[in-house]
Write a protein that binds this DNA or RNA. Structure first.
Length: 269
DNA sequence: ATGGTTGCGTAGCAA
């Protein structure tokens, strides 16, 4: 079962590039982020005609997540539990019916968290957009812990807006004050990992130079000034099934690309 | 330090 995550930065803008990648990469399931569309405006029929099951959780102009699948989906839920007042569309879950195993897939678009304000002591103030990010991550931790109780394969796939380690940025010194790399952000990410999840990419690949996002600005792609912020976290039962993990780096160099590229795993399921 | 780009939607915010 090939499962991918891909922040497409707008479904309308990626109406050619996304089907092109789907045809070339042939994933079984894809978690999409930043569809930037309400459900009714998502080109559902176009993807259904190409053989995809389509589940969206959209929002006007911003955010929005979706799951495309060749395999049957069951028990689809939308929204991250823990705050009924949260109106941002950043979380969707579905059970993917593989040939041999069922996999619970969570597609997520974790808040960016910038800009960050700092106190006189130089520490970040936990308020505003940064407070929302850390609060959202605590809610995600609670849901991730709950999912482990089922002792089944679980995959948490998406744009985490977290640079886990310095080696995950071409220029880590440029990110010291940024919500994607602040110690508090990385600690919140580690708290999820420390529940017992495995970060798929780092379980197989070590060392610097592996990125999933290059800014549109200042020639970041041409300079390979990237960061690795798109991740797949695996429950122990999913980690046991891991066959392969890859970043589809070349997609960033194609026509009208997203600023992110797909990251995928292959599970024996 | 500044400016650099793209998307959505048609101004200005988000990233």
């Amino acid at each position: 079962m090939k499962i991918a995550t891909f922040n497409i930065n707008g479904i309308k803008a990626r109406i050619e590039a996304l089907p092109r990648w789907l045809e070339a990469a042939k994933p079984d399931v894809v978690a999409l982020q930043e569809i930037k569309s309400v459900d009714d405006a998502f080109p559902r029929e176009m993807f259904e005609d190409l053989g995809w099951r389509v589940e969206t959780h959209g929002q006007k102009s911003f955010n929005g997540v979706a799951i495309l699948s060749r395999l049957p989906l069951e028990d689809v839920t939308r929204g991250l539990p823990g705050d009924d007042s949260d109106e941002q569309a950043r979380w969707i879950e579905a059970t993917v019916m593989g040939d041999t195993r069922r996999v619970r897939l969570c597609g997520l678009y974790l808040p960016n968290g910038n800009p960050v304000s700092f106190g006189a002591d130089g520490r970040p103030l936990i308020e505003g957009k940064y407070g929302y990010k850390l609060g959202w991550m605590e809610r995600m931790r609670a849901r991730a812990a709950e999912l482990l109780l089922g002792e089944e394969p679980v995959v948490l796939a998406g744009d985490y807006n977290i640079i886990p380690q310095a080696e995950d940025a071409a220029r880590p010194e440029a990110w010291g004050q940024d919500a994607l790399f602040l110690p508090e952000s990385r600690a919140a990410f580690r708290r999820i990992l420390n529940l017992g999840y495995t970060e798929a990419f780092r379980s197989r690949v070590s060392g610097p130079g592996h990125y999933s996002f290059w800014d549109y600005q200042a020639g970041a792609w041409d300079r390979n000034n990237g960061i690795r912020i798109d991740h797949l976290l695996l429950s122990p039962q999913a980690a046991d099934l891991l066959r392969d993990v890859q970043i589809d780096r070349a997609v960033r160099g194609e026509d009208k690309p997203s600023d992110h590229v797909p990251v995928w795993i292959d599970l024996d399921a």
